[in-house]
Design a protein around this nucleic acid. Structure first.
Length: 152
DNA sequence: GCCAACGTTGGC
DNA sequence: GCCAACGTTGGC
Protein backbone atom coordinates (compact mmCIF):
# COMPACT_ATOMS: atom_id res chain seq x y z
CA UNK A 1 0.00 0.00 0.00
CA UNK A 2 1.13 3.53 -0.72
CA UNK A 3 0.45 6.68 1.27
CA UNK A 4 -0.20 10.20 0.09
CA UNK A 5 -0.82 13.66 1.43
CA UNK A 6 -3.65 15.27 -0.47
CA UNK A 7 -4.26 18.97 -0.03
CA UNK A 8 -7.63 20.60 -0.30
CA UNK A 9 -8.97 23.95 0.68
CA UNK A 10 -11.67 23.21 3.24
CA UNK A 11 -13.74 26.11 1.92
CA UNK A 12 -13.99 24.12 -1.32
CA UNK A 13 -13.82 20.49 -0.17
CA UNK A 14 -13.25 19.65 3.49
CA UNK A 15 -13.08 16.25 5.15
CA UNK A 16 -16.61 16.91 6.41
CA UNK A 17 -17.79 17.46 2.86
CA UNK A 18 -16.36 14.09 1.88
CA UNK A 19 -18.16 12.43 4.78
CA UNK A 20 -21.44 13.98 3.68
CA UNK A 21 -21.18 13.04 0.02
CA UNK A 22 -23.25 10.27 -1.51
CA UNK A 23 -21.19 7.14 -0.98
CA UNK A 24 -18.81 9.34 1.03
CA UNK A 25 -16.83 9.64 -2.19
CA UNK A 26 -15.46 12.56 -4.19
CA UNK A 27 -13.29 12.88 -7.24
CA UNK A 28 -10.04 14.75 -6.88
CA UNK A 29 -10.71 17.20 -9.69
CA UNK A 30 -8.65 20.21 -10.59
CA UNK A 31 -5.04 19.01 -10.40
CA UNK A 32 -3.23 21.05 -13.06
CA UNK A 33 0.38 20.35 -12.31
CA UNK A 34 2.21 17.61 -14.18
CA UNK A 35 4.14 16.22 -11.24
CA UNK A 36 1.03 16.07 -9.08
CA UNK A 37 -0.83 14.47 -11.98
CA UNK A 38 1.83 11.82 -12.26
CA UNK A 39 1.40 11.04 -8.59
CA UNK A 40 -2.35 10.68 -9.15
CA UNK A 41 -1.59 8.16 -11.88
CA UNK A 42 0.59 6.15 -9.54
CA UNK A 43 -2.19 5.75 -7.00
CA UNK A 44 -3.68 2.31 -6.54
CA UNK A 45 -6.89 1.03 -5.06
CA UNK A 46 -6.63 0.91 -1.29
CA UNK A 47 -3.88 3.50 -1.00
CA UNK A 48 -4.35 5.75 2.01
CA UNK A 49 -4.57 9.53 1.74
CA UNK A 50 -3.89 11.95 4.55
CA UNK A 51 -6.47 14.66 3.95
CA UNK A 52 -4.75 18.01 4.46
CA UNK A 53 -6.60 21.29 4.86
CA UNK A 54 -4.69 24.14 3.21
CA UNK A 55 -5.18 27.89 2.80
CA UNK A 56 -7.25 28.11 5.93
CA UNK A 57 -6.91 29.36 9.52
CA UNK A 58 -5.59 26.02 10.79
CA UNK A 59 -3.71 24.15 8.07
CA UNK A 60 -2.99 20.51 8.81
CA UNK A 61 -4.10 16.92 8.48
CA UNK A 62 -7.77 16.53 9.33
CA UNK A 63 -8.70 13.03 8.23
CA UNK A 64 -8.05 9.91 6.21
CA UNK A 65 -9.35 8.87 2.82
CA UNK A 66 -8.90 5.81 0.65
CA UNK A 67 -8.39 5.58 -3.10
CA UNK A 68 -11.43 3.81 -4.53
CA UNK A 69 -10.96 4.54 -8.22
CA UNK A 70 -7.64 4.79 -9.99
CA UNK A 71 -6.75 7.58 -12.39
CA UNK A 72 -9.19 8.52 -15.14
CA UNK A 73 -9.62 11.70 -17.22
CA UNK A 74 -10.67 14.69 -15.15
CA UNK A 75 -13.98 15.76 -16.73
CA UNK A 76 -13.54 19.39 -15.73
CA UNK A 77 -10.77 19.81 -18.33
CA UNK A 78 -13.35 19.45 -21.13
CA UNK A 79 -16.05 21.72 -19.71
CA UNK A 80 -15.73 25.24 -21.17
CA UNK A 81 -17.77 26.64 -18.30
CA UNK A 82 -15.57 25.14 -15.66
CA UNK A 83 -12.85 26.93 -13.78
CA UNK A 84 -10.50 24.05 -14.63
CA UNK A 85 -11.30 23.97 -18.35
CA UNK A 86 -8.17 23.36 -20.43
CA UNK A 87 -8.69 24.17 -24.11
CA UNK A 88 -5.33 22.63 -24.98
CA UNK A 89 -6.16 19.19 -23.62
CA UNK A 90 -6.73 16.78 -26.53
CA UNK A 91 -9.96 14.79 -26.24
CA UNK A 92 -8.21 11.66 -27.50
CA UNK A 93 -5.30 12.07 -25.09
CA UNK A 94 -6.53 13.85 -21.99
CA UNK A 95 -3.90 15.83 -20.23
CA UNK A 96 -5.32 15.76 -16.71
CA UNK A 97 -6.35 12.93 -14.46
CA UNK A 98 -8.38 12.52 -11.32
CA UNK A 99 -9.01 9.72 -8.84
CA UNK A 100 -11.93 8.98 -6.54
CA UNK A 101 -11.37 8.96 -2.82
CA UNK A 102 -13.66 7.71 -0.08
CA UNK A 103 -13.97 8.91 3.47
CA UNK A 104 -12.27 6.70 6.02
CA UNK A 105 -12.41 8.79 9.18
CA UNK A 106 -11.85 12.17 10.64
CA UNK A 107 -8.84 12.63 12.88
CA UNK A 108 -7.80 15.26 15.33
CA UNK A 109 -6.23 18.21 13.56
CA UNK A 110 -2.54 17.48 13.19
CA UNK A 111 -1.43 21.03 12.53
CA UNK A 112 1.31 22.15 10.20
CA UNK A 113 3.11 23.60 13.22
CA UNK A 114 3.06 20.22 14.94
CA UNK A 115 4.28 18.51 11.78
CA UNK A 116 7.19 20.93 11.64
CA UNK A 117 7.96 20.36 15.31
CA UNK A 118 8.37 16.63 14.87
CA UNK A 119 12.03 15.83 14.08
CA UNK A 120 11.18 12.50 12.48
CA UNK A 121 9.09 14.18 9.82
CA UNK A 122 11.74 16.58 8.60
CA UNK A 123 11.90 14.85 5.24
CA UNK A 124 8.20 15.08 4.58
CA UNK A 125 7.69 16.63 1.21
CA UNK A 126 4.87 18.86 2.25
CA UNK A 127 7.15 20.54 4.77
CA UNK A 128 9.86 21.44 2.30
CA UNK A 129 10.31 25.08 1.52
CA UNK A 130 8.45 26.18 -1.56
CA UNK A 131 6.53 22.96 -1.92
CA UNK A 132 3.30 23.66 -3.70
CA UNK A 133 2.23 20.24 -4.88
CA UNK A 134 -1.32 19.34 -3.96
CA UNK A 135 -0.53 15.62 -4.04
CA UNK A 136 2.68 14.19 -2.60
CA UNK A 137 3.84 10.69 -1.66
CA UNK A 138 4.60 9.72 1.94
CA UNK A 139 7.01 6.89 2.65
CA UNK A 140 6.14 4.00 4.94
CA UNK A 141 8.13 5.28 7.91
CA UNK A 142 6.64 8.75 7.76
CA UNK A 143 3.17 7.29 7.24
CA UNK A 144 3.49 5.22 10.42
CA UNK A 145 4.74 8.29 12.29
CA UNK A 146 1.73 10.26 11.10
CA UNK A 147 -0.68 7.49 12.02
CA UNK A 148 0.91 7.36 15.46
CA UNK A 149 0.57 11.10 15.95
CA UNK A 150 -3.03 10.88 14.84
CA UNK A 151 -3.59 8.07 17.36
CA UNK A 152 -5.11 5.90 14.69
C1' DG B 1 -2.59 41.63 1.79
C1' DC B 2 2.22 40.30 1.52
C1' DC B 3 5.74 37.63 -0.15
C1' DA B 4 8.65 33.56 -1.35
C1' DA B 5 8.87 29.86 -4.37
C1' DC B 6 7.95 27.67 -8.30
C1' DG B 7 5.66 26.44 -12.93
C1' DT B 8 4.28 28.00 -17.39
C1' DT B 9 4.28 30.89 -21.33
C1' DG B 10 6.02 33.09 -25.23
C1' DG B 11 9.32 36.13 -27.67
C1' DC B 12 13.66 35.84 -29.53
C1' DG C 1 17.01 26.60 -25.81
C1' DC C 2 17.17 30.77 -23.01
C1' DC C 3 15.01 33.77 -19.98
C1' DA C 4 11.91 37.50 -18.49
C1' DA C 5 7.27 38.09 -17.34
C1' DC C 6 3.47 36.45 -15.37
C1' DG C 7 0.30 33.46 -12.65
C1' DT C 8 -0.49 30.44 -8.77
C1' DT C 9 0.14 28.42 -4.28
C1' DG C 10 -0.12 28.76 0.43
C1' DG C 11 1.67 30.19 4.96
C1' DC C 12 1.66 34.05 7.69
Amino acid sequence: MQYWIMKSEPSVVSIDHVAERPGQTVDWFGVRNYLARNFLRQMRLGDLGFFYHSSCPEPGIAGLVEIVREAYPDPTQFDPGDHYFDPKSPADDPRWSTVDVRFVRKTRLLSLAELRDHPGLAGLRVLQKGNRLSVTPVDEVDAQTLLGLLAV
